[in-house]
C-alpha cells in the first residue's frame, strides 16, 4: 500500500464513523484509558519496529512521503474547518452548510475524520521516533528528535488533555463565599475551596481613560490572592483561575461580583514540555543553517 492508500482508507473510516456516530466526546477516553492506550501503543510500535521494521508497510508508514501526505491531509482539513463557521447547524442553514456539517466540518476539531488524521500523524511520529531511537542515531540528530518528540508530546498532551480537562465558570461576589463552578452544560462542580471577592480595581489610561488592566483580589480559603487579565492564579496543582468579566450594578469600576474560569488540566506539563521541545528543536535547526 502507498501512503495515499493508508490516508484515504483511514479518512474513509473517519467519515463513516462521523456519519454513523456524529462527533467524538473526548471524555470517553478519560484517565486511565488514555494513559493505557498511549503505553500500549508505544509498546506495540516498539515491538513492530524491532521485528518488522524493514517490512515495506512499516517503512512506508514512517517515510517522508507519508509525512507529506499527512501534512497535506491535515492542512486541507484545517482549511475546510477554517472556512466553515464552527457552530451547530441552524434550522435555516444553507445546503452548503448542511453538507459541511455532514462531514463534521462545523465542529471539525472533534470530528472523526480530523481525529483519525491526527491519530495517524501520531502513529507516524511514534514510528519515526522509535526508529531513530532503536538505531541509536539520536546523538547525531538531536534536533530531529526534539522537533518530532515535541510535536508528539504536544499532540498527546492536547488530545489526552481534552479528555481529562475540567472547565467551570464561577461567579464570585463580595457578600458571600462560594464553592460552586458550572460547566458548559450547566452542571455543578463543587470546588474543594471557597472563594470570595474582596477588592476589584480597573487601571485606566491617563490620556483617554480606556481600561488597561482589570485586577481582582479574592479570598481563597481566607488566603488573599490577586488575579488579573493575562495573570491567572494557580490554586492547586494543575488548577488555575482566570478573570473573565466583572459585574457592577451602578456601571462604575467598583465590581459587585466577578466571573472566573476554573481550568483543571493534569496534562498541562505535557503540552508545555512539547512546546518547549519544539522551540528548542526549531532553534537548534536554525543554528545549524549556514
Amino acid at each position: 500500500m502507498k501512503p495515499l492508500h493508508y490516508i484515504l482508507t483511514s479518512l474513509f473510516a473517519g467519515v463513516l464513523l462521523q456519519v454513523l456516530c456524529g462527533g467524538i466526546r473526548p471524555s470517553v477516553v478519560a484517565f486511565p484509558l488514555n494513559v493505557s492506550i498511549i503505553f500500549a501503543l508505544l509498546a506495540t510500535l516498539w515491538v513492530v519496529e524491532g521485528e518488522w521494521g524493514e517490512k515495506t508497510a512499516v517503512r512506508t508508514f514512517r517515510s517522508p512521503r507519508m509525512a507529506c501526505g499527512l501534512l497535506i491531509a491535515v492542512g486541507i482539513w484545517c482549511v475546510l474547518g477554517g472556512l466553515t463557521p464552527q457552530m451547530p447547524i441552524p434550522d435555516d442553514a444553507t445546503l452548503l452548510h448542511r453538507f459541511a456539517a455532514f462531514w463534521g466540518l462545523n465542529k471539525f476539531p472533534t470530528s472523526y475524520p480530523f481525529v483519525v488524521l491526527l491519530l495517524l500523524l501520531l502513529l507516524h511520529l511514534s514510528l519515526v521516533i522509535i526508529h531513530r531511537l532503536r538505531q541509536r542515531a539520536w546523538r547525531r540528530d538531536v534536533p530531529f528528535l526534539l522537533l518530532h518528540g515535541g510535536l508528539w508530546l504536544a499532540l498527546v498532551g492536547g488530545m489526552a488533555g481534552s479528555a481529562d480537562a475540567v472547565e467551570g465558570r464561577i461567579i464570585v461576589a463580595r457578600q458571600a463565599p462560594t464553592r460552586s463552578a458550572y460547566d458548559a452544560y450547566g452542571r455543578e462542580i463543587t470546588l474543594p475551596y471557597t472563594l470570595r471577592l474582596t477588592d476589584f480595581h480597573v487601571t485606566r489610561h491617563e490620556a483617554d481613560h480606556s481600561p488597561v488592566q482589570y485586577e481582582a483580589t479574592l479570598l481563597i480559603d481566607d488566603m488573599p490572592q490577586s488575579l488579573a487579565v493575562n495573570s491567572p492564579c494557580g490554586v492547586r496543582l494543575f488548577e488555575d483561575l482566570y478573570l473573565l468579566n466583572y459585574f457592577s450594578e451602578d456601571d462604575t469600576d467598583q465590581a459587585d461580583a466577578v466571573l472566573l474560569l476554573m481550568v483543571r488540566n493534569p496534562w498541562k506539563p505535557a503540552v508545555l514540555g512539547g512546546i518547549l521541545l519544539l522551540l528548542l528543536g526549531t532553534g537548534w535547526q536554525l543554528f545549524r543553517l549556514k
Binding site: A67, C68, L71, I72, V74, G75, C78, V79, G81, G82, Q86, F108, P109, A154, G158, E167, V229, N230, S231, P232, D240, Y242, L261, V263, K268, V271, L272, I275
Partner: peptide, 27 residues
C-alpha cells in the same frame, strides 16, 4: 493563550489557519 484563556490551543479560526500554514511549511 494558556495565560489569558486557560487553553494552549482552542482551534479558534485564526489558530486553525495558523495550523494550516504551519502544515504547509512542514510540507
Amino acid at each position: 493563550a494558556k495565560q489569558a484563556w486557560g487553553d494552549y490551543w482552542t482551534w479558534d479560526p485564526k489558530e486553525t489557519w495558523a495550523a494550516a500554514t504551519w502544515c504547509a511549511c512542514l510540507l
